[in-house]
């Protein structure tokens, strides 16, 4: 029941949101979008790893 990944993702999300607004205020809207894409990519990498663990567990436990 490791909850820390949830908080990590939430932190990255909030950080990306703040960066996006700051960058858009500073007139660099395109960099804001880049930061958003980077944030989504990083977070998705984290979750993909956990998903593969889930599927592996299901495969072994249900001995498919």
């Amino acid at each position: 029941m490791n909850v820390d990944l949830i908080f990590k993702i939430a932190g990255v999300g909030i950080l990306v949101a703040i960066l996006h607004t700051v960058l858009s205020k500073a007139g660099k809207e395109e960099y804001g979008h880049l930061v958003t894409i980077a944030g989504v990519a990083i977070v998705f990498m984290m979750v993909v790893e956990l998903l593969s663990k889930l599927f592996q567990t299901v495969k072994t436990l249900f001995n498919l």
Partner: peptide, 9 residues
Amino acid sequence: TKPELAIVL
């Protein structure tokens, strides 16, 4: 703020 991150969460 970021709907695309919501799906990952």
